[in-house]
Amino acid sequence: MDEEYDVIVLGTGLTECILSGIMSVNGKKVLHMDRNPYYGGESSSITPLEELYKRFQLLEGPPESMGRGRDWNVDLIPKFLMANGQLVKMLLYTEVTRYLDFKVVEGSFVYKGGKIYKVPSTETEALASNLMGMFEKRRFRKFLVFVANFDENDPKTFEGVDPQTTSMRDVYRKFDLGQDVIDFTGHALALYRTDDYLDQPCLETVNRIKLYSESLARYGKSPYLYPLYGLGELPQGFARLSAIYGGTYMLNKPVDDIIMENGKVVGVKSEGEVARCKQLICDPSYIPDRVRKAGQVIRIICILSHPIKNTNDANSCQIIIPQNQVNRKSDIYVCMISYAHNVAAQGKYIAIASTTVETTDPEKEVEPALELLEPIDQKFVAISDLYEPIDDGCESQVFCSCSYDATTHFETTCNDIKDIYKRMAGTAFDFENMKRKQNDVFGEAEQ
């Protein structure tokens, strides 16, 4: 370990593993360490099931009705991949897709007046949907046509809207959309967690709705994908990429100290040895004095023996409960997957309800979601602090990732990755940087 590296990475969460992969592909010498004996950090999948019970201090362990412990891979952080989103792009560019198998999530649902409705995925579904009345549908269709044709580089498509100054509230007004449709559009399509976006320039919202539609167009059922064997497969896929390009991995490796000289990182000390480096990437748990708390998320993992009611017996789905429907500031989400994804025993389902904490009784906040899941065989409640770095790391060369937020997709995580890359490399992130180099010394032969 007593060696000189360009970059040392602490923690094998998804953000850290993707950055480690990119740095290795770009010719950097990388050492990647984790104090845990497993990959994934906060974003790991726990197996066998006995391990999950232990982690949540349920000492009696799983009953026999849960089947074989080894058949379970339970995500600690519930997220899906947008089919046309940035993480899929990263997987394709790096060819990490060859280590993973994905399934399309069967449906996306939205909560309205105590019931759940399928988010329409085709024009026919939209016309048949009970989510809105006849005239509302016509106006909504006009709005969707506007979004589909919108091109930020072609003012002819703006229809009198200025993407940089017109607020989204004004765009909704222009198409005369009612409150329910606005809730549905902002939260189930643009996937905002709160209503803060309404008074911001509309460009980002329009682009988010386009991303949803384009992702949906790829597979038809929903815009989301999920990897077989759980999300823990993602960091491992990128760790393989890093290793192929010469990255060194050490799990179960305690970090005793991060060594600084004149305010700059110069190395990491572990078990009496020092590895030197020019730059350091880590998750917040490794540098508690360089991060601040930015809120909390509650996630309740529920094991069920039945599909969720009114989802047409889907073996995977997402449910969004827009905040307006339950008098909150932030949406509540449910991600459900099952034995069909090799993450649970035969006939079992895993539904994870999550939201940003707003009160001193977080469990009560998630109740509307839990009511949709009854009866629940077993619950595991996790309340996590969200951390963000206190500075950009440019001076110390210590670059810290943000905690995983309450969103049900990876777009915010990818933004964090691109942002850290830019601060480390001094140049904007470009997907081309992730391409495997042809015929290089570490390149794998085609399968």
Results as ranks from 00 to 15, higher is better:
E214Q: 01
G247D: 12
N153K: 12
R55C: 08
Y99T: 13
Y172H: 05
K29M: 02
G426V: 08
L10D: 03
I258T: 03
F399N: 02
E204T: 15
V110E: 15
G11D: 11
D170V: 03
D440T: 07
L370F: 09
I22N: 00
D289V: 06
E363D: 12
S330T: 08
L91R: 00
Y229N: 08
I383S: 02
N26R: 03
K118Y: 01
E444G: 11
E432Y: 04
F175V: 03
A239D: 03
E432A: 11
D289H: 13
A351V: 09
D283A: 11
K142V: 05
C302Y: 07
R290Q: 15
Y111M: 01
P78C: 13
S108R: 03
D154S: 14
K103R: 11
E106A: 02
G114S: 07
S215I: 00
V147L: 09
K364Q: 13
V268A: 03
N153G: 07
V88S: 15
S215L: 08
K142L: 00
R290Y: 15
L370W: 09
G160L: 01
L216I: 09
T359K: 07
C317V: 05
Y39K: 01
R292T: 14
V441T: 11
H32Y: 01
D361S: 10
M132T: 08
L14K: 01
C17I: 06
S354R: 02
M424L: 10
A406G: 10
M260S: 07
I420T: 07
S45Y: 00
D257C: 15
G393R: 10
I8N: 06
L373D: 03
R276F: 12
K118V: 01
D180C: 08
Y111W: 03
G393C: 04
R169S: 03
K269C: 14
M66R: 03
I244T: 08
I300S: 05
S403A: 12
K54M: 00
G247A: 12
G107Y: 15
D2V: 04
I308T: 05
G85A: 10
Q179Y: 14
L373H: 09
D313E: 00
D34V: 04
F399S: 02
Q346P: 09
E4F: 13
S65T: 10
D6A: 05
G27L: 09
L234T: 01
E3C: 08
I417M: 02
V145M: 10
T194A: 09
D34E: 01
T47K: 00
D430N: 05
F399P: 02
P284S: 08
S338H: 08
V357H: 03
G263Y: 06
S285C: 12
L228G: 02
E50R: 06
P201T: 04
E374G: 11
G232N: 15
K103M: 09
D419T: 09
E214G: 09
Y249K: 06
E51K: 09
M90T: 07
I209A: 00
Q279L: 08
A243Y: 15
D180F: 14
T360S: 03
H306Q: 04
T413K: 15
K142G: 08
C17L: 03
K54R: 12
D361G: 06
F135M: 15
D313F: 01
Y339N: 06
P288Y: 01
K118R: 08
L191P: 03
Y192S: 07
F135W: 14
G393D: 04
E136G: 11
E367Q: 09
S222W: 10
M90V: 06
L76A: 15
N327Y: 03
V255F: 03
E3G: 10
N26D: 07
E261Q: 07
N73R: 11
N327K: 01
Y286V: 04
N439S: 10
T427P: 11
V265S: 15
D256C: 12
V104T: 09
L49M: 00
Y197Q: 15
K137D: 13
P63H: 07
D440A: 06
Q346D: 04
E261G: 08
I18T: 08
E3V: 10
E395R: 13
R193I: 15
K422M: 13
C414V: 15
Y349M: 04
S285G: 11
Y117G: 13
E363V: 01
E371L: 03
E367G: 12
E125G: 10
E159V: 12
A126R: 04
R436V: 07
Y39Q: 14
E16W: 02
M82I: 08
L52M: 00
V366D: 01
P235Y: 15
V25A: 10
E152W: 06
L127F: 10
R276C: 08
Y286W: 15
N439L: 13
A340V: 13
Y38E: 00
R299W: 00
E365S: 02
N415D: 10
E444K: 11
